[in-house]
Design a protein around this nucleic acid. Structure first.
Lengths: 206, 206
DNA sequence: TTGGTCACTTACCATATGGTAGACAGATCT
DNA sequence: AGATCTGTCTACCATATGGTAAGTGACCAA
């Protein structure tokens, strides 16, 4: 009943397990998440988890797959509203921030993926591959048409990705910088990053 | 005898333990690192580790402290060679990349810190606080003098940090983008990021 | 020689973890 | 009604983990 998340409103047990696992994996990390504590949070016995997901690794894979789909849908959606170069980039960044506001765990998981070795990370990246390709091609096209400064598209993508994820998930550092992770701060960070990206990417001042 | 690292050439046991712990914490993560496996790699019994560092957490703290010092020294050094705005930024970025080439684990640890909760992360950030302050003030001064576009200094710092760390540590994503993490690639990434930063920061094209 | 400290070891231990085996209640099917 | 299937639970278990207690040999001062 208490979904606590808001995304998968399903009361179904496997969905609830996935929700809880996503949150815990994203915040405490995969290894640091025990099936027992997960089960306790769900007011369910550990065996119930193992009934739906035969092993912890399978559970991780399931979380990855579901998250990759959600992420893809959200971003593909904002990529679909085709626009001129910068508008498009801005739309994507905004939708990522929207996602971060609604489901911070999702972004946290993305971050965690980079740390988890080849089995998990590979699966995740593979699932997002079409998205990456599309974004990469988009950037290249924009450069060709002169809307954006020329860069190595894939490296540029990595840079943008790193900046956005960092600005969204480096909570500790934020705190140390005197920036409490509030909703207001999120807006400021968004403004800042958009400003930076525009300066870095766009050729002529729009 | 086999220091395997190159930095702390000391053959002293505690130093070797710190070296191994740093590498393992940075690559496999703190929780995923067991004292046993650590000891095995050092051809030493686990108790030897616990003799020098009474608990795993103390070991982590020690690794953090030593790494923070190394990091500070490296960056303070490149900050010391005072120069005009952009030259200064470039020098720092270059020294981070140099550090990444010589001691990738150090950067890996930085990344890991963001994930580890308040006890560890706070300690780390606190140790680097003077560096952060200095960098922040530098940026502000540069903006005041008109050498750089105006931004929120602390957020700008976070953005730069995120980008650099990301470009240096997102190995999986790099691979997925067809960029093998070689030395050659490192140079390309450095060029790319410097290019990006210059576009984003500098007011007049140097 | 002896007593003590240092660096490290062997011997254990309590606990937590992922996972197996099988029971049990309720729903569904025949 | 009886058989079967579904979802969850209780009962265990092997292993790994961080950590304690106590020993051992080398060295060193008195």
């Amino acid at each position: 009943m208490p979904t606590s998340n808001g995304v998968a409103d399903e009361t179904s047990t496997p969905a609830r397990i996935l929700d809880a696992a996503l949150v815990s994996f994203a915040t405490r990390g995969y290894e640091a998440t025990s099936l027992d504590s997960l089960a306790a949070g769900l007011e369910v016995r550990k065996q119930t988890i193992l009934y739906w997901f035969p092993s912890k690794e399978v559970l991780l894979d399931a979380v990855i797959d579901r998250s990759a789909i959600e992420l893809s849908e959200a971003l593909e959606g904002s990529l679909a509203t085709a626009g001129t170069g910068w508008v498009q980039v801005e739309a994507v960044v905004r939708s990522v921030f929207r996602l971060a506001a609604r489901q911070p765990e999702l972004l946290g998981l993305v971050r965690e993926m980079g740390r988890l070795g080849p089995p998990a990370a590979t699966r995740f990246v593979a699932a997002l591959e079409p998205l990456v390709s599309r974004a990469s091609e988009f950037l290249e096209a924009e450069m060709d048409s002169g809307h954006m400064r020329r860069h190595e598209p894939r490296l540029l993508l990595l840079a943008i990705y790193s900046t956005v994820i960092g600005m969204l998930t480096e909570v500790e550092l934020l705190r140390a910088l005197g920036e409490e992770p509030t909703a207001r701060s999120l807006v400021r960070r968004r403004a800042e990053i958009l400003d930076l990206l525009r300066s870095a990417l766009v050729t002529s001042t729009a």
